[in-house]
């Protein structure tokens, strides 16, 4: 616990936390605006899926409860990105600023250092989750009211979505620390994680679309292996037609987080620090 405290102190005593905070707020505002518009489109029936399978999805998404879960988890996309980057930087900055030597001199049992970093990253993740969720609970009922569908806060599905949102933040934080260990270069880690997270989902969607069309239909089921897709799946309010069940998404994310965490810890234990 002493080490988690020290890790949080490290984060607090540099400018990274308020830089990330300043980035997060406008991104949150943009996400909220975007969700408002898309919810409006769904409610007013302007969204058109085209093909029958897609149309069924649109119909499902258009239900007030699904609009609600989407709105009450606003900030997840950008918040997770910030958490992912911060978690990776918690590790890579030690090597970037050559402080790894000092850190491991104070605590030569390196696995405890990495565990403390996981702990600190999770605390940061839950903090970002709490802030975005608080903003959502304040602002979303106003939007729901404007859309004339009630605030839906009585629905257990909404609270489940908020809880799962916390789980998503937490798992992405673990993933970020693990990947930070694997990609030790600060620049490479932030660029790779940032790009893969933002553009990766779209690129993978296209790749899977092509594979599905030209190779085999079953490959489509593997798309859930893309972490961002898994994350979205885990959060979807009710079972959507044509998608794997929600727990598969959770399982995939947990799997990635565990692998990244374990591999990252083992590598750190063995590596020479010079």
């Amino acid at each position: 616990m002493r080490l988690v405290n020290a890790e949080l102190f490290k984060l607090r005593t540099t400018s990274i936390w308020w830089i990330m905070g300043i980035i997060l707020l406008p991104l949150y505002a943009a996400s909220l605006g975007f969700n408002w518009l898309s919810s409006y489109a769904l409610v007013s029936g302007q969204a058109d899926g085209g093909a029958s399978d897609a149309q069924a999805q649109v119909d499902a998404v258009s239900q007030p409860i699904n609009i609600a879960t989407n709105l009450y988890t606003t900030g997840q996309y950008m918040g997770v990105l910030i958490v992912l980057l911060l978690s990776a930087i918690i590790v890579t900055s030690e090597f970037f600023h050559l402080t790894a030597t000092t850190t491991f001199l104070v605590t030569p049992r390196r696995e405890t250092v990495i565990l403390a970093k996981f702990g600190a990253a999770i605390i940061v993740a839950l903090l970002v989750w709490a802030i975005t969720t608080l903003l959502d609970l304040l602002l979303v009922p106003i939007i729901m009211d404007a859309l004339n569908i009630g605030n839906q806060l009585g629905e257990p599905a909404v609270w489940r979505a908020i809880g799962l949102n916390a789980l998503a933040f937490l798992l992405w934080a673990v993933l970020g620390v693990g990947l930070g260990v694997l990609i030790r270069s600060q620049l490479a880690a932030t660029l790779i994680l940032g790009i893969v997270y933002t553009i990766g989902t779209g690129v993978f969607a296209i790749i899977f679309q092509l594979l599905e069309t030209y190779v085999a239909k079953w490959i489509q089921n593997l798309e859930v292996l893309v972490p961002t897709t898994a994350s979205q799946l885990m959060l979807s309010g009710t079972e959507l037609p044509g998608n794997p069940p929600r727990w598969v998404g959770a399982l995939v994310l947990i799997g990635y987080a565990v692998i990244a965490g374990v591999v990252g810890t083992l590598i750190t234990k063995r590596r020479d620090i010079s």
């Binding site: 405290n5 490290k10 005593t13 540099t14 600023h97 050559l98 030597t101 000092t102 104070v106």
Partner: peptide, 23 residues
């Protein structure tokens, strides 16, 4: 071990406090 082994954006005192807390 290395003269340049502290975070550039952290104050000298906070660098030492960070070590104190971990230890």
């Amino acid at each position: 071990l290395e003269a340049s082994s502290a975070h550039r954006g952290r104050t000298g005192r906070n660098h030492l406090r960070m070590i104190c807390r971990a230890a």
